[in-house]
């Protein structure tokens, strides 16, 4: 047993394990999928960067043994944009949460998609701000309870694939933390696709979202995903909003070609 090593040891900062995520959390699964995809993609690990923002998912960068950056709240995408434009050789992976990418980072999200900056964005969506103790997020379905929606959330929630698609992303997929194999495949496809790719991962937050709403633990949420998610590839993104404890449509929704920012830039330069 002594010689046995963790299968992901080459990709993780083992000296920082155990990680801070709570029991039943889905972020670890997203990391597993990401690492498997990186492994399968057979990329030069020295040319890969992981950038995260703030929040639970924001800690991902701290555990992955690549060039990894834990940036400020909401600024993972513009930070990654800077890296990419300074050195277009690098492959950028942004891993962050729904609050970080869609709420405070929403503007950068839509603009990076518009510019079609070449990067893979993995948005772990747990419907809540977990790091700060369970506040309402733009993705919180109505009428879920959170600490800043103590009477039930009344705001309509963001539909992440739709925002990504309408702003110009070339690849958009959504899976739950349960669909680990398909998620891995999607991340792999995204890694191989030039342009702005978004993979949304619906993930259980056992400590806050599930507890406040009495939805059980992580396993209960996984069972819920199992029973209630339906794969519908290329479903129009209008139909992808997620209701409270309602069916979750997963799949690959957008896969199209558009010139990336760097390509357009090169083209103009030549002119």
């Amino acid at each position: 047993m002594k010689n046995e090593t963790h299968p992901m040891e080459n990709y993780l900062r083992m000296d920082r394990i155990p990680h801070i995520w709570c029991p039943g959390c889905g972020i670890g699964l997203a990391v597993t999928a990401l690492v498997s995809a990186i492994e399968k993609a057979n990329l030069d690990l020295n040319k890969l960067c992981v950038v995260s923002g703030i929040g639970c998912t924001g800690r991902v960068a701290g555990y992955i043994k690549l060039d990894s950056f834990h940036t400020t709240h909401g600024r993972a995408i513009p930070f990654a944009t800077g890296i990419k434009l300074a050195n277009p050789e690098l492959k950028l992976i942004v891993v962050s949460g729904d609050g970080d990418l869609i709420s405070i980072g929403g503007n950068h999200f839509i603009h990076a998609a518009r510019r079609n900056i070449d990067m893979v964005v993995i948005c772990v969506n747990n419907f809540i701000y977990a790091m700060t103790g369970g506040q309402v997020a733009p993705t919180t379905p109505s009428p879920a309870y959170t600490t800043t929606s103590p009477y039930g959330n009344f705001e309509p929630s963001s539909n992440v694939p739709q925002i990504a698609e309408s702003a110009g992303a070339v690849y958009v997929a959504r899976w739950t933390a349960l669909h680990i194999r398909r998620l891995t495949n999607s991340i792999l496809e995204a890694l191989n696709k030039p342009g702005f790719s978004v993979v949304e991962v619906i993930s259980p937050c056992a400590q806050y979202y599930s507890r406040i709403n009495r939805l059980g633990d992580g396993m209960d949420m996984m069972k819920f995903y199992h029973d209630n998610s339906e794969i519908k590839h290329f479903e129009p993104t209008d139909n992808l909003s997620i209701g409270y404890q309602k069916e979750i449509t997963v799949g690959k929704f957008v896969d199209r070609e558009r010139p990336t920012y760097t390509e357009s830039f090169q083209k103009w330069l030549k002119k």
Partner: peptide
């Protein structure tokens, strides 16, 4: 008008209730 941030969030939570 607020936005969650540690360690101030409890104030917003108290207000919203």
């Amino acid at each position: 008008g607020g936005y969650p941030i540690t360690p101030s969030t409890e104030a917003a939570e108290a207000f919203v209730r």
